[in-house]
Design a binder for these strands. Structure first.
Length: 110
DNA sequence: GACATGACGGCAG
DNA sequence: CCTGCCGCCATGT
């Protein structure tokens, strides 16, 4: 069990801090961590987050507000269902009012 | 050890 | 406006 997952841990923490009914993006998290160029790593961290029940990965979407990672959930519907359960409107895997729901740790959590 | 891929994003053409 | 490539780091084959 490598403990060098400080990066991952940071990602989990930020995602966990996302207010209910809000969503964040891979780029936002990456930028907050200083590795904005490595947005992919954030996604990879989410992959690991799958084992962590404390990480609401469903609140993490890409820059377009598109549920790109829904396929990685237990079921492709789980992500959208969870989002809708929080009051977020999702249509065709696309979050509506994404610009309003977007939560940027580097800005909001400033 | 090298090549290909991945829950992304930005820039160039 | 749309398409394509590169960068970034880690993992799998």
């Amino acid at each position: 069990m490598p403990l060098d997952k400080n990066f991952f841990t940071d990602v989990y923490e930020v995602v966990r801090l996302v207010p209910k009914g809000r969503v964040t993006t891979y780029g936002a998290i990456a930028e907050y961590l200083g590795t904005k160029s490595s947005a992919r790593m954030v996604g990879w961290a989410m992959n690991s987050a799958h084992s962590t029940s404390d990480v609401p990965a469903h609140r993490v979407v890409n820059r377009q507000g598109l549920l790109t990672g829904k396929h990685h959930f237990a079921t492709p519907q789980a992500m959208q269902q969870l989002l809708e359960a929080e009051g977020i409107v999702v249509e065709n895997d696309q979050i509506q009012n994404f610009d309003k729901l977007a939560w940027y740790p580097a800005k909001e959590l400033l």
